[in-house]
Computed example of a mutant assay.
Amino acid sequence: MNKNGWIIYNGNLPGNKFLDYAEMIQQAAAAKSIETTIYKNNELLSLLTKDQLDLLEPYKKELPDFVVFADKDIYLARQLELLGVRVFNSAKAIDTSDDKIATYQYLAANQLPIPKTIIAPKIFYKGNVDPSLLQQVIEKLGQPLIIKEAFGSFGEQVYLLENMEEIIMKIKEIQGKPYLFQEFIPSSFGMDLRLQVVGDRVVAAMARKNTNDFRANVTAGGTMNTYTPSKAESDLAIAAVKAIQADFAGVDLLVGKNNSRLVCEVNSNAHIRNLLDCTGINAADYIIDYIMEVLL
């Protein structure tokens, strides 16, 4: 049975990293004789009326069999789902993955190991920092500690804070945004493991190290090496992806006490170019195979 798909990426971001991901998926599909079209999200406008839930012309008559959604525009993803299109990953999975607080809630609900985390109360205007709240946080998590904004990419909204003064300054800076407090894992300073999960398997993995920053992200200066995960590491990564109900995702694991593993992040739109460059394994091939298995 012939299938055709769309690959959607964000058309309003600088650089070509997101287009590159879309093109990798398209090339993998073409190798299996599957026709795909790449669209920017801002080319596909959703229409809502009393009598209509659709896309504007000319796309409304050309809906695909599936969509690979390489974006965070969950409203467009949901619109396509409501129109009956199977979207990989789903709007719900993307929404959960994009929100670090929601991700940790689902991981904890599934009893998966994560750094000890406290959610900052939601506020609607900037004001004084509650000292009693901070005292509770520090008593539970210790110092230094991590503050993470709920929304952010490439480790850019993650902060390592050494003392009360730094914590208060950062809170004043980001007040009004959702964020969390998290224990610092010194045994994983500048080091993590990235496992790419597709369906029920880990298809590739790499170890990332950064000698100049607590974050191991390559964009923060980290280096990559091929890594062979243990069965326990693979099982943990797969369980994390299932916890947020994703079809595929990149899972970052931290190295905890006694060489244990903790889930740091589940990225439903993990870029796979670095993984290919590091390991020689193209996750796009596995993603296309998985999509065809699901559809057929």
Rank of each mutant, 00 (worst) to 15 (best):
L55K: 06
K60N: 14
A204R: 04
F214A: 10
I171E: 12
E183C: 08
E23V: 11
V263F: 02
A220L: 12
E149A: 04
M191L: 15
K172L: 09
L295Y: 02
I146Q: 06
I174Q: 07
L275M: 15
V129R: 03
K100G: 06
G84M: 13
S132Q: 14
I74N: 10
S90V: 04
R201I: 03
P64F: 12
S268K: 03
A29T: 08
I272G: 07
C264S: 14
F189N: 14
Y286N: 07
D95K: 09
K17A: 12
Q136D: 09
I74D: 12
V251K: 09
Q245M: 03
P121N: 09
V129N: 02
T228N: 11
T36V: 11
I288K: 05
D65W: 01
F181Q: 08
M169W: 01
E62M: 07
M1Y: 04
D130F: 02
F214Y: 10
E156A: 08
I146V: 15
K209H: 14
L275I: 13
R194F: 05
Y286R: 01
L55E: 05
S230A: 04
A216M: 06
I171D: 04
M1T: 09
D192C: 09
A205S: 14
S33Y: 11
A240T: 05
K60C: 10
G222K: 07
Y39W: 14
I8M: 09
L180P: 03
L112I: 10
A29W: 07
I123M: 08
A220M: 15
A216I: 06
D235P: 00
I244G: 03
D71F: 03
Q157E: 12
N259M: 11
Y159L: 00
I287C: 02
T219E: 10
F66K: 02
Q175N: 08
F184H: 05
L107A: 09
R273F: 05
L160D: 02
F181C: 03
K177M: 09
G127D: 13
L55G: 03
A108H: 10
L254A: 06
V251W: 08
K72L: 13
N225Y: 07
D20Y: 01
